[in-house]
Amino acid sequence: MEKRVTFKGWFLPLLLVLPQAIVSAVFFFYPAGQAVWQSMFIPDPFGLKSQFVGLGNFEYLLGNSYYRASFVTTAIFSTLVTVVSMGVALYLALLADRLIKGSGTYRTLLIWPYAVAPAIAGVLWLFMFNTRVGVVAWYLGVLGYDWNHVLNGTEAMGLVVVASSWGRISYNFLFFLAGLQAIPKSVIEAAAIDGAHFWTRFRTIVWPLLSPTTFFLLVVNIVYAFFETFGVIHTITAGGPQQATTILVYKVFSDGFVGQDLGSSAAQSVILLIVVSALTIVQFKFVERRVHY
C-alpha cells in the first residue's frame, strides 16, 4: 500500500518542490539543453564563428566505425566494472557481517579506498603494473608471464577495470553491509534451525531481501562506470593501446578538449545521455520487477 499525502491547494506543494526544481533546472536541464543545441553546430574553438549542420555531427559519428566500436568497449568495460565491484563488495560484506571480533577495524580499512580520487588510484595501479618498474609486473615476470598492457589490449582493459573497481568496492561494501544488517537475524536463525545451509539461506532469504540494495547499486554503478571512470583511463592508458580502452566518455573528452571539436563532443554527450537514460529506464522497467521491497 502506498502512502499518499494530500495537500489542499497548489501553493505549498509547489513551494516545497521549487528548490529541487531550481537545482535540476540550473545544473541539469540548462546544460543538457545547451549540449543538445551545440550538437547541431560545428563551431571553431574560439567561438568566433559557428555553422549549423543539423544532424550532421551525429551522421559523422555514427558513420565512423571507430566510434561504433567504442560502444562495444564501453559495454564490456561497464559490465566488468559493475560485476567485479559489486561481486567483491558483496563477498566482503558477507564475511564482515559474520565477523564478531574486530569488525570495526576491518570495516574501516575496507572503506579507505573510497577516499582515493580516481586519478590518484589510476597512478597507483599504473605504478604497480608498469611494464618496466612495476612490482606486480616484475613478479609476473618471475612467474614467466610477460605483462605488457602498453601493447596488449586485453591486459590494458583488465588493468583499468581493476583500477576503476577498486575504490568502488568500498562504496558498494558499505551499502551491502547495511543491507545485510537490516535483515532480521530471527529469519535466518529460523532457516538454520530448519536445516538450511549457508548457500540455501543466501539464495532463498538473504539475496531476495537484499535485492533493493542490489538494484540501487546496479543503477549507481553503471552510471559510475559510464561517467566517472574517466580519470582512471586518462592516467593509465589514455584510451590505448590502439583503441582498446577508449570508452564513450573518454572520447567525449579527447574530441572536445584535445581535438577542440566541440560539435562532435556535444553530439557525443547527447548520445551518451540517451544511452544512459535508456539503460536506466530498462533497469527500472524490467529489473525492478524482481526486487522485493
Partner: peptide, 15 residues
C-alpha cells in the same frame, strides 16, 4: 586537429 591526428597515428603504430 594535429593533437588528435597524433593520437590516431599512435593507435595505428601500436597495431
Amino acid at each position: 586537429s594535429f593533437d588528435q591526428i597524433r593520437t590516431v597515428i599512435d593507435e595505428e603504430l601500436e597495431a
